[in-house]
């Protein structure tokens, strides 16, 4: 039986929780053989394959809720602090390069200090550095230097969540 190109890498990446990005040649192969992989992951492991315009990932019944919550907290605080700093946070997340030192400054001086200090991934510069390694491993960020990174398109999973969350909340507020 002939398998699609990059089969081993595609399966290995997705099974280790990575987002496969549109800039990766694997993405093209995955997209071309979408039906095959949808069925493959469903039949082999019971996982759902999600292919968006610029990234792909798989989902299981049991999800990494803790990590997802930490990532949401990270994006939420970062967006809030960037906005407070007078920046267009969405543009920054989409296009800017972040220096960990600058992020440390934001997190250290944040008004959400209590949430930050009580979170294992964000409580101090060292924890955050390890957290960036996790994000990098999942392809949510891409390291561009020793202490620099940019966000990949996978940021959309979390930013879209925030918009949906607001709409849900706003709807709830207007209904009540």
């Amino acid at each position: 039986m002939e398998f699609p190109r990059y089969h081993k890498d595609i399966v290995s990446d997705l099974m280790s929780g990575k987002f496969i990005l549109a800039s990766d040649p694997k993405f093209v192969s995955l997209k071309e053989t979408e039906d095959f992989y949808t069925q493959f992951f469903k039949e082999s492991f019971g996982y759902e394959l999600e292919i968006k315009t610029d990234f792909a990932y798989i989902l299981s019944y049991e999800t990494g809720e803790q990590l997802s919550r930490d990532i949401c907290l990270f994006f939420a605080i970062l967006s809030f602090e960037l906005d407070k700093d007078g920046k267009n946070f969405l543009e920054e997340i989409q296009y800017a390069e972040f220096e960990t030192e600058k992020l440390d400054e934001y997190f250290t001086n944040s008004s959400y200090a209590e949430l930050i200090l009580n979170n294992n991934q964000m409580k101090d510069a060292f924890s955050r550095k390890q957290f960036y390694t996790t994000l990098n491993r999942r392809n949510i960020i891409e390291k561009t230097g020793e202490n620099k990174f940019t966000f990949t398109q996978a940021y959309k999973v979390f930013i879209d969540f925030a918009a949906d969350f607001a709409k849900g909340k706003l709807n709830a507020a207007s209904e009540s």
Binding site: L14, C72, A76, I159
Partner: peptide, 24 residues
């Protein structure tokens, strides 16, 4: 709108739903 979402989320971050991501 996104910022509104985050601010609402930060009010109760441990009780709010979160997006699904894969758990190896």
């Amino acid at each position: 709108i996104i910022l509104t979402g985050w601010i609402e989320f930060l009010k109760q971050p441990y009780k709010s739903p979160v997006p699904k991501i894969f758990k190896p």
